[in-house]
Design a protein around this nucleic acid. Structure first.
Lengths: 76, 76
DNA sequence: AGTCAGTGGGGTAATTAGGGAG
DNA sequence: CCTGTCCTAATTACCCCACTGA
C-alpha cells in the first residue's frame, strides 16, 4: 500500500517522544518529565489511555536552551 | 483534487485511516489502537474481512483535544 | 495463480500514571 | 522549590500464528 506511508507523514512531520525517551535526553527520571508536563513547562499530548507523548521539536528547543547555559536561570 | 489522488473516500468525503496510520499519529503500537476500538475509546468501522478502519476527523479531534494539556500560562 | 505488508487474536514483559514520603 | 525513589493499578509494547487486503 502506498497511501499508508504517505499518510504517516502528513502531520507536519511531527515526531512524538515517550516520557522515557525525553527523560533519557535530559538525563532525568521519567517522573520528572511528567512533573514538567503537569506544571505546563512542556507541552504534552495524551493518548486515549492517558499516557503522555511529547513533541520532539519542543524538546529539542528546550535542549537548545540548556546548551546556551547562562549563569542566570531562565525566567519563564 | 481532480487527478491521481484517489484515496479511500466515502460519500461524506470522510477519509479512513488504518490502525497503523493512527498508531503513527499517536506514537503507539497498532495493537494499542485496536484496544482503543475494543474499549470504545475510539469509533471504528470494520471491513467485510474484519479489519478496522478509523475516521480521520475523529482521530484529528482526539489529537486536538488532547494536545494542549497545560492550562497554565506558558511564557517564553 | 501467486506474493507480502498489515491486521486480528491471544498471551506475557515493560512503561507509565498517580499518590505519598524522604 | 525541585528531584529521585517506593508503591499499586492501568496502559502500552513485543511475542506467537492465521487471515485479510492490495
Amino acid at each position: 500500500m502506498t497511501a499508508s506511508v504517505q499518510a504517516t507523514r502528513q502531520n507536519t512531520g511531527e515526531r512524538l517522544l515517550t516520557p522515557g525517551e525525553v527523560a533519557s535526553l535530559f538525563r532525568v527520571d521519567p517522573k520528572t518529565v511528567t512533573r514538567w508536563a503537569t506544571a505546563g513547562r512542556i507541552g504534552s499530548i495524551r493518548t486515549p489511555g492517558g499516557h503522555r507523548r511529547f513533541r520532539e521539536s519542543e524538546v529539542q528547543a528546550l535542549l537548545s536552551e540548556l546548551t546556551t547555559e547562562a549563569t542566570e536561570p531562565v525566567r519563564h
